[in-house]
Design a protein around this nucleic acid. Sequence first.
DNA 1: GTTGATGCAAAGTATTTGCAGAGGG
DNA 2: CCCTCTGCAAATACTTTGCATCAAC
Lengths: 152, 152
Amino acid sequence: MTQDLFKEKWAIYEQHISQKGLKSTRQRDVIVEEFFGEHEHLTVEELWQRVRKIDSKIGYATVYRTLKLLSESGLAHKRQFGEAQARFEHATDHHHDHLICMSCHQIIEFENDEIETLQERVCKKHKFQLVHHKMELYGYCEKCSAKKGRGI
Amino acid sequence: MTQDLFKEKWAIYEQHISQKGLKSTRQRDVIVEEFFGEHEHLTVEELWQRVRKIDSKIGYATVYRTLKLLSESGLAHKRQFGEAQARFEHATDHHHDHLICMSCHQIIEFENDEIETLQERVCKKHKFQLVHHKMELYGYCEKCSAKKGRGI
DNA sequence: GTTGATGCAAAGTATTTGCAGAGGG
DNA sequence: CCCTCTGCAAATACTTTGCATCAAC
């Protein structure tokens, strides 16, 4: 993520904090910075492992609470990709869907307007009022396909 | 479901049972019959409530174990529709996706080949080997839309 | 100094499992 | 009879919450 985008997100986060009369704390700053700094889809566990390296005293519950806060301020989205644990992704201004590698758990984001149009058509046909949707394609990414092909 | 389809599914279930050297029991028969008999997407809790009315001694764990059995024999599919509890649907010979009413939890199944084709194209573009996918459209069904419109 | 935040441990959910006794084949 | 199944309760996995203490503002 660019420095500008980082600052913009940080500003939204601080605005949300002050708007709600909440406090900025050392722990929150570490967690939010680490979350923004990575362009990945982290689980709570993974994020906790990372922040612990910066401040080993940060508790599991604080990571949960901070991610909830980020979700509420619209900066993070909770996702369930068929695993037991939820993953959190950075909010983006554009809607996107996901390719999920069943081997290395890499997540690739993609957009496809044609599919979106067809989805709307399906809803119309069923007189269904669409609010949001979820499309997840599960399989093997290029790297993992190759590994499997070589019998690894 | 038609009587023929019911018998066909029952036959697959019995075949799976005997193939694996498993036993047919009173409890399993009640659970499987109740599951096949409803064309819904039930949670374990909901199915348990139904079978309890037939045999109040049937335990929660047995329902879980029987649904696992049905999943293994390919007669049921476990689904997570954004709720905490999983729902189980009848296996069908055709792939389909879902419209999920956020108000009444009704689930409408639909098929759309055009979308499937586009999905494959997305995967090709990312050199991704597709295994399966999940597309869920969340919103309000015709009935619930109308209710909301009238302010109910 | 208030009031919200933290860390811990305990509680909460959904699901799975160990085990002793029951019951199919 | 043997071996699987059942019901119960305990265990598990992830997440949330209560509470005493701590730290922002």
